[in-house]
Computed example of a mutant assay.
Amino acid sequence: MQTEVLLDRFLDGLAPLAPLAVWAHGSLAGGDYQEGRSDLDLIAVLEGPPTPRTIWRLAKLHARLRTAPLADRLHCTYLTPDAVDDVDRRHLTWAHQQLFKRPVTPVTRRELHAFGRVLRGTAPAGLLPPVTDRELGEFVVSDQRDFWRPAVDDARLWTRDVWVDLGLITFARASVTAREGRLISKREALDLLPGLGAPVEVVEDIRRRRYEDAAPPTEEWAAYRAGLARDYLGPAIDALVASYA
């Protein structure tokens, strides 16, 4: 399996930095992973704050993996013990073939505690503070309000598969988390979306592309699908925020 080969190469390359832990979250840990379609979402905990030399070594490691199968889908955020309890802190991250900084969200933190896969070292409970239901609920609602709702108004985005897929799936997952305080998989989100009023043809389009070898959408379908997705998500997000903000 190409995924395990890539993970082994990554972990071997990271070993000289002696990470305290390396964890998987997202689909890779939650049981809905689709090789070649899903991202490999990882967290590594380094012993101390990354120095310029550490950053150079991490960049070199990821550069060596660049041509490996699935390497473009390997994302890793690098935490340090002194900063794990700051949910707003932006941490060094490799994703989309570059290094930048981003926070480790309450959703990711809850995933790690609930079903994180330990690839090396200490389990998440030994290093990562827990996330309360209130913190989790407030985050998913604010994410819908502050990120996804403005994005719905940008028509240019929604002819792309990734925006349609993540937009609808993230909304369904946020709805369940806000209402029940639990996380669900992408597959569960797709099953729930028709009951939440989402256009069935769009949901089935997402399902085929995620779980089957579906052909790329035509320009006509992509434009029509974009309208359906935006017409649904705008009012749906507004209602969610009004109920739980």
Rank of each mutant, 00 (worst) to 15 (best):
F10K: 02
L183M: 04
P16I: 05
Y224M: 13
P235A: 15
D133L: 12
T54F: 10
A223K: 14
G195L: 08
A226W: 02
I206L: 11
D161M: 15
H91P: 04
S243D: 14
E35F: 00
T170V: 12
H25A: 02
A59N: 09
D32L: 03
P19T: 02
R173K: 12
D154A: 09
R230K: 03
L136T: 01
R110W: 12
L192P: 01
D143G: 07
A236C: 10
P130E: 08
R57N: 13
D238W: 10
T218G: 15
M1I: 08
W94K: 05
L14F: 03
Q34H: 14
L112G: 00
L65F: 13
Y224F: 15
T3A: 02
A172L: 03
V84G: 04
L17M: 14
E4T: 06
D88K: 13
G30W: 09
G195A: 05
A223T: 12
V131W: 07
H75F: 07
L20A: 12
A239R: 15
L127S: 03
L190I: 01
Q34N: 10
L157N: 01
E47Q: 15
W94S: 00
G227E: 15
P130H: 11
F147W: 15
A214Y: 13
I184F: 08
P81Y: 03
R156T: 08
E47L: 11
W221F: 15
L119Y: 04
E180H: 15
R187P: 00
I55C: 10
A174P: 06
A226C: 08
A151T: 08
V176T: 11
I206E: 04
